[in-house]
């Protein structure tokens, strides 16, 4: 489904990703763990198409297509979803306007008919209910005045609506207390399916107790330095990242 080969990327001339190789098959959940500054967020932004990052070497193929050649919105329409570490507040744009515009743009891209207001409403209400979000939350301006947990749930609601083939969860646990984390993790788990792959990016093992990965990778100083099963996360929790060296060694 997703194939990353020898990916190098720089920001402002500084190389952050130094040759990432990663293959994710349909239905698999991979976790990337790593110390701060290892390039985790850069990887998520490079995959989702944010401006400001330059890919200097390597390739990313998504469902057989060259992902790096696409604009951010094309990637989203093709089925790549980024759940943000810090979901953005957008005053003046209601959640419903935002999601209806997004969903219909994606449907249009896929050659599906656009949903009218009533169809959309029915869908969003059902999806929101599953995430314990009320009408008020979906009517309000995007993320404005939302708590940390509400923002993350809102991102997961977007994922549930857009039904991506591949989702990147960037530090989804940051800023969440344990109850909020459980709620978000339940939302994510309910979206796991044999057709949907996920890349869970996290600093801590905690999240992986709730969203259990098939594979765990350690990213340090721009490279994947170790890969293993879910037990690797527990090992990292116990030993820390110290053994993965310093930037000089990488």
């Amino acid at each position: 489904m997703l194939e990353i080969k020898n990916l190098h990327a720089t920001i402002d001339g500084k190389e952050i990703l130094k040759g990432i190789n990663l293959t994710i098959n349909p239905g698999e959940v991979h976790a990337i763990m790593g110390p701060n500054g290892s390039g985790k967020s850069t990887l998520s932004y490079v995959l989702s198409g944010r401006d400001g990052y330059e890919v200097t070497e390597g390739s990313v193929t998504f469902q057989g297509k060259d992902l790096l050649a696409m604009e951010a919105e094309e990637r989203a329409a093709e089925g790549v979803f980024l759940a943000f570490q810090y979901p953005v507040e957008i005053p003046g744009v209601s959640n419903t306007t935002f999601l209806k515009t997004a969903l219909n743009a994606v449907r249009k891209h896929k050659g599906l008919p656009e949903l009218d207001a009533m169809q959309f409403l029915k869908l969003i209400r059902a999806k929101a209910k599953a995430l314990n979000m009320n009408d008020d939350m979906i009517k309000r301006a995007v993320n404005v005045g939302f708590s940390g947990g509400e923002k993350k749930r809102n991102d997961i609601l977007q994922m549930a609506m857009l039904e991506p083939g591949f989702a990147i969860l960037d530090e989804t646990d940051s800023g969440l207390d344990i109850d909020a984390l459980k709620l978000v993790a339940d939302g994510v788990n309910s979206l796991r399916s044999p057709e949907r792959s996920m890349l869970v990016i996290t600093h801590y093992q905690r999240l992986l107790s709730y969203i259990v990965p098939d594979h765990v990778h350690v990213l340090a100083y721009g490279k994947i330095v170790r890969s293993g099963g879910k037990e690797l996360a527990l090992e990292l929790e116990a030993k820390g990242y110290a053994e993965f060296g310093s930037p000089e060694a990488a």
Binding site: E73, A77, P87, I90, F98, A102, A105, V106
Partner: peptide
């Protein structure tokens, strides 16, 4: 905000 919207499939 612009990137957030685009990352959800909304054309620039």
């Amino acid at each position: 905000a612009l990137f957030y919207l685009r990352a959800r499939g909304i054309p620039a």
